[in-house]
Design a protein around this nucleic acid. Structure first.
Lengths: 226, 226
DNA sequence: GGCAAAATATGATAAATGTCAGTTTTTAAG
DNA sequence: CTTAAAAACTGACATTTATCATATTTTGCC
C-alpha cells in the first residue's frame, strides 16, 4: 500500500513530460503491489481502475480462445506498463495478465493519468508513442513467432528472445525459466512437441536442461537453427 | 490532386472532435489519390508526410522477413487509415502498403494533423482510441490466423473473414478475390497447400472456384471446418 | 524426509504440411 | 485474336507436427 517513490516507466519516458508538481501528485497517489509467481493481476474483460508498471519481475499477457486454450501474446518486464488500453477506452481488459515470477508493481490511479492526458499534449504524445512501440513490437513478434517458420525455428527464436529479455548471467551462461506448457502457448503447439524439440536442441549441444532450468550453451547453434 | 470534400474516417470519428474551422482547413489541404491495383503506396522504412484514408477499394499491410518472404499483417478497407504510426513517431513506415484492388485515397497533410493533436485533447483521444482498436483487432487476428489452429482451419477463417470484410453480394452468394500466394502470405504456408485445401473445400461443396474468383456456397460448412 | 500433484520425458503412430517437378488455365499486353 | 507471362493446379513424396499412452522426475507441502 506504500506509495512508489521512484519509478522507472520505460514507455512514458519516466513521466518526464509532466510538470514536477503533476509528477509528484501522481507518485503520491501511487501504490506498490506484490504479485506472487503464478497469480493473476487481471483477467480478460475485467474493468481496471489502475495503470500498472512493473518494478521487478516478469508477467505475461494471454488470451483464451473459444475452445479454452491459452495463447500467450507477450512477455513484460521491468519498466513496462500494463492496462494502457483499458485506461484509454474505459472498456474491460482484452487480455489476462499473470505473474511469471514474483513481481512488484507500481499502481497509478487511472483518473490521475487521464487528467494529465487531457491537460498535457506532450504527455499525450508519449502515450501515443507507447502505443506505436507496442504495435511495432507485436508485429515483429508475430512474424518471428507465428508465421513462415516451423515450430522448431520458432522455439529457437523464443529461447534466444527470452534469454535476451529475462536471462540472468550465471557463470557465463544465460538462464531462462518458463514452463514447457507456456512455450507451447506462445508458439501454438503442444507441450509434448516442445519437449521433443528441446531434447533435440539438448542433443545438439545447444542447451542444457537441469531441473526446470534451461541454460543456453550455444546461441550460435540456435541462430543457425532458424 | 483535387481536395477531398467529404470523407468518412472511421477511426478518427470523422474528425468530429475538431472545430468546424479546423476540419475545413484539413479538408482544404487534402488531396485525392488514385492507386491502381497492385501498386505500392509506401514501403517499409519509407518516410511519410501524409496520413492516408481509403475512400474506395482495399489495401494490404505487409512486411518482408529477413529471408525476403512476404507476410501479410492486415487488410484495410473503406474508411480505414494508413500511416498513423509514422505520423506519431516521425520514423519511417514499419510496413508496406499495397493496393489489392483499384483504390481511391484521401491524403491529409501530416503536419496539419499533428498540429490538431497538439491543440485538441479530444482529437488526441480519438487517435489513442484508434491505436487501441488496432491493437485489439491485431491480437484477435493473431489468435485466429496464427496459432493453435492448423492451416486448414485458418484458411476457413480467412475465407469467412474476407467475405465478411470485402465480399459483394452476387445472386445470394458472397464473392472474394485474393491470390493464392497472398492467402499463403497471411497464413504462413505455401501457395500449393492453399490450393490443395481450396480443392478440398471445393470437393466438400463449401466453395465454388470460377477463374480466380471464389464463391462461398456454405458458410456453415466452413464454420464447421474450424 | 516422504508424499501427492504437477511437470517433464519418451517413443510409437497418425495426420498435417512442405516441397518439387511438371501441366493447365487465366490474365494482361500488343 | 494472339501470345507470353503469371497464376492456378496436380500428384508424389519427404518432413514436420500432433496425439496418445505411459514412465520418470521435480516441486510444493506436511
Amino acid at each position: 500500500m506504500k506509495k512508489c517513490d521512484t519509478i522507472r516507466v520505460k514507455q512514458l519516458n519516466d513521466f518526464k513530460s509532466l510538470s514536477e508538481a503533476a509528477r509528484q501528485k501522481m507518485l503520491n497517489a501511487s501504490e506498490t503491489l506484490f504479485l506472487p509467481k503464478g497469480s493473476v493481476l487481471f483477467k480478460e474483460n475485467q474493468h481496471l481502475n489502475k495503470l500498472y508498471c512493473i518494478r521487478e519481475g516478469a508477467c505475461k499477457f494471454s488470451k483464451l480462445d473459444h475452445s479454452g486454450q491459452e495463447h500467450i501474446l507477450r512477455f513484460l518486464g521491468k519498466g513496462e506498463l500494463m492496462g494502457k488500453r483499458a485506461m484509454v477506452t474505459n472498456n474491460g481488459a482484452k487480455v489476462s495478465a499473470t505473474a511469471l515470477t514474483d513481481t512488484k508493481l507500481c499502481c497509478f490511479d487511472k483518473n490521475e493519468v487521464l487528467e494529465n492526458l487531457r491537460t498535457n499534449a506532450d504527455f499525450c504524445n508519449d502515450l501515443l508513442s507507447a502505443f506505436v512501440e507496442d504495435a511495432n513490437t507485436n508485429e515483429h513478434t508475430r512474424i518471428i513467432f507465428c508465421v513462415h517458420k516451423g515450430i522448431k525455428q520458432r522455439l529457437a527464436r523464443l529461447l534466444l528472445y527470452l534469454t535476451d529479455k529475462f536471462g540472468q548471467h550465471t557463470n557465463g551462461k544465460m538462464r531462462i525459466r518458463l514452463k514447457r506448457e507456456d512455450m507451447a502457448a506462445v508458439l501454438g503447439t503442444s507441450q509434448e512437441y516442445i519437449i521433443n524439440l528441446l531434447a533435440r536442441f539438448r542433443n545438439a549441444g545447444f542447451i542444457k536442461v537441469e531441473r526446470s532450468e534451461i541454460f543456453i550453451l550455444s546461441k550460435e547453434g540456435l541462430q543457425k537453427s532458424i
